[in-house]
Amino acid sequence: MKRSLRWYDLVGFGIGGMVGAGVFVTTRRASRINVGPSVVLSYAVAGLCALLTAFCYTEFAVDLPVAGGAFSYIRVTFGEFLAFLTGANLIIDYVLSNAAAARGFTAYLGTAMGISTHTHLRFTIHGLPEGYNEIDIVAVAVVLLLTLVIYYSTRESSWLNMVLTVLHILFIVFVIVVGFWRGEWKNFTEPENPKSPGGFFPFGASGVINGAAVVYLNYIGYDGCTSSRKWR
């Protein structure tokens, strides 16, 4: 294949894979349902797990100088069958994570436009089970658009990835700055509703671990980026 990416393109893919749109989708759900204010510790736990996994990939890359990725390493180490299961699991992982991020885009779009997401941007199929009966046309359009960009050119997709990654980082910095500026420390210890659990650990240590399992979705991109050596 023709070499079309440079070192900073690969760095951009790596950062974009770890600082993607998922951070804006999973953080709200994890902090509200699973962990509370201690979601910052959930991110630390998830980041540590991702770091240890990256060290394992480094060892594999040194011992097995082939195209990076869990499929290639497991195929060489354990055989074709386990590699097939790993590849299938990775495909499901990427499909579900991309679907979650695209669906979250619809929710944010509806909020920005001041309209109801469920009545204006999603269509309900009453014959399907509850929770699986909403057709999200906007999410499908976003996924198809990004797929066309990636299919059209690797260089253009890298450029789009860098632009979106910069925007994501700016949004995260904005949230941090506004949080320190407008936030109140009492929110860490006093619940808004006295009947609801409050404090920094409203759901205890188990809540931190459960939250880490949810926000780990934001780190899965590094796995795909390990195979970027062959894209050059």
Rank of each mutant, 00 (worst) to 15 (best):
N210D: 12
N161I: 07
N133G: 12
W231A: 12
L85P: 13
T226H: 12
A67I: 05
F13T: 02
I15R: 07
V66Q: 04
L160Q: 11
T165S: 11
N187C: 11
Y151S: 14
P197K: 03
A141Y: 09
M1L: 12
H118L: 11
T26I: 10
I176R: 14
V214Q: 01
G104D: 13
D93E: 08
A100R: 05
G14Y: 05
N218I: 02
A212T: 04
G20Q: 01
M113H: 12
G221K: 09
R75K: 08
G79Y: 07
N187V: 09
V62W: 04
G131H: 08
L64I: 15
G207E: 07
A112V: 09
F188A: 08
G87R: 05
L109N: 03
A99T: 06
L82M: 04
V45R: 15
A101I: 03
G47Q: 01
V62L: 10
F174P: 00
L170H: 05
V11E: 09
T165R: 03
I92Q: 11
Y73G: 04
L82I: 03
T226P: 09
G221T: 15
D63S: 15
V95F: 08
V19H: 03
F24M: 04
D223P: 00
V45T: 09
V66N: 07
E190I: 00
V214S: 04
G68Q: 11
Y43E: 06
R229T: 14
R32E: 15
V178S: 00
V19N: 00
L109A: 10
W185N: 08
A112G: 15
R32I: 11
T189M: 07
V19P: 01
F13H: 07
D9G: 04
Y108W: 07
A70F: 10
R155S: 06
G207A: 12
T119K: 12
I15C: 08
M113P: 08
A44T: 04
G198L: 06
G87V: 14
L160G: 13
D93V: 01
D136R: 10
V76S: 13
F71M: 13
F60P: 02
V23D: 07
I92D: 06
N133P: 04
I220T: 07
S196A: 15
D136N: 10
V163Q: 10
I33M: 01
E190D: 06
T53K: 01
C49Y: 01
W231K: 00
T226I: 09
L85S: 14
Y108C: 04
I137F: 14
W185H: 12
L145C: 10
Y132C: 09
F78P: 01
F171L: 13
L145M: 06
G17T: 04
M162W: 13
F200I: 02
G221H: 11
S97I: 04
I169H: 06
I125V: 01
R3L: 10
V39Y: 02
L85E: 14
R122P: 06
C225L: 02
D63R: 06
G87C: 15
A205R: 03
A102I: 11
A44I: 14
G17E: 00
V143N: 05
W181S: 12
R182W: 13
V25L: 11
P197N: 07
G183W: 15
R3N: 13
N187M: 11
T106F: 02
L51K: 01
G12T: 01
G110R: 03
R229Q: 12
G14N: 02
G221N: 13
P37Y: 03
G179L: 02
K2S: 15
P191M: 05
